[in-house]
C-alpha cells in the first residue's frame, strides 16, 4: 500500500483536464506502455507565449495520473518561460508530496512539459542523446546526472525513485553508483565518455554475448542450416532462441548447453546460464 496525500488521492479520483487539446500547439509524449507509465501532454499557446490550455492523457498508477492532473493545473496561464522553470519537485509539492518510490511520476510530468514546449518551439531535446545506462527503462546518463543535480540525490535508491534507472534487473547499480560519485564530486563533465566500470553491466554483457555469438557460434550453426538469436539477458540467465534447422534438431538442448553455454562461459563470463526461450 502506497501512502498518498489527500491531494494525490483527490487528483487521482477527480483528475482535471483529461483529454487532448484540439489543434494543439505543442505535444509532449513521454514514457511507454512497456515501462508501465506514459503521459501525453497537449498545450495551446497564444501569440504572447502564454499557455492558455493544457490537457493530458496518462497510462499509469495513481501518482502518475495525479501528477499529470496537477501539471496541467499548474501551467495554465503561465508563460512558456515560466512553465519551463517548473521542476519535478514543484509538481510533487503541488500535491503535498509524493512517496519517494513514486518521484519518477513527477519527473515524467516535467519531461512531458519540456517535450511539449520543445515541440512548440521546434527544438529537439538533448536528454535523449546521452548513453543508455539503464537498459530496462532506457534511461540515459544525462538524465541521471540531471536528476542528481536538480534533486540533490545521494544514493542509488534515490536515483531509482526519481528516474526508474536501476529499478528493473538492477544490474546497472554499479554504474549508477559510479555516476553518482563522480557527479557529486563534480568531476564528471556532461558529455565526457564514461570510464570502464569494474563489473559488467547488462548492456556490456549483451554486447559481448552478441559479439561471441556472431564470431564464434553462428558460423558453425549456419553451416548446418541453423541460427541463433539472443532474446534476453536477466542477471546471469541468458535466454536464446534457436532458428532454422537447429530449432527442430533433437540435439538442440545439447547444442545450447554443451556448445553455446560453454563458449559464452569461456569468452564472456563463467557464471552465465544459457536457457532456450
Amino acid at each position: 500500500m502506497w501512502e498518498y496525500t489527500d491531494l494525490v488521492k483527490e487528483h487521482f479520483l477527480n483528475p482535471r483536464n483529461v483529454g487532448e487539446v484540439e489543434q494543439a500547439d505543442g505535444t509532449g509524449d513521454v514514457g511507454s506502455l512497456a515501462c508501465g507509465d506514459a503521459l501525453k501532454l497537449t498545450i495551446k499557446v497564444d501569440d504572447k507565449g502564454i499557455i492558455t490550455d493544457a490537457k493530458f492523457k496518462t497510462f499509469g498508477c495513481a501518482s502518475a495520473i495525479a501528477s499529470s492532473s496537477a501539471l496541467t493545473e499548474m501551467v495554465k496561464g503561465m508563460s512558456l518561460d515560466e512553465a519551463s522553470k517548473i521542476t519535478n519537485e514543484d509538481i510533487a509539492d503541488y500535491l503535498g508530496g509524493l512517496p519517494k518510490e513514486k518521484m519518477h511520476c513527477s519527473v515524467m510530468g516535467r519531461e512531458a512539459l519540456e517535450a511539449a514546449i520543445a515541440d512548440y518551439r521546434g527544438l529537439t531535446l538533448p536528454m535523449a542523446e546521452g548513453e543508455i545506462v539503464c537498459e530496462c527503462f532506457g534511461v540515459t546518463d544525462l538524465e541521471i546526472i540531471r536528476a542528481i543535480n536538480e534533486s540533490n540525490l545521494r544514493s542509488v535508491e534515490e536515483i531509482t525513485n526519481f528516474t526508474k534507472a536501476g529499478g528493473g534487473c538492477g544490474k546497472c547499480e554499479d554504474k549508477l553508483r559510479e555516476i553518482l560519485q563522480r557527479t557529486v564530486e563534480g568531476k564528471l563533465e556532461w558529455i565526457k565518455p564514461m570510464e570502464k566500470p569494474k563489473k559488467m553491466t547488462t548492456l556490456q554483457k549483451i554486447k559481448k554475448i552478441e559479439d561471441v555469438l556472431e564470431r564464434e557460434i553462428r558460423p558453425g550453426l549456419r553451416k548446418d542450416g541453423g541460427d541463433i538469436e539472443l532474446i534476453d539477458v536477466d542477471g546471469d540467465f541468458v535466454s536464446v532462441s534457436l532458428r532454422g534447422a537447429c530449432k527442430s534438431c533433437a540435439k538442440s538442448q545439447t547444442t545450447i548447453k554443451e556448445y553455446v553455454e560453454k563458449k559464452l562461459r569461456e569468452l564472456v563470463l563463467d557464471t552465465l546460464i544459457v536457457e532456450e526461450n
Binding site: 502506497w2 488521492k9 487521482f12 479520483l13 497510462f59 498508477c61 495513481a62 502518475a64 495520473i65
Partner: peptide, 14 residues
C-alpha cells in the same frame, strides 16, 4: 488492456 493495475486497485478500494 491499456490501463494500469495500481490505478484499478485504488478505484476498487473505494
Amino acid at each position: 488492456e491499456f490501463v494500469e493495475g495500481e490505478a484499478i486497485l485504488l478505484h476498487m478500494n473505494r
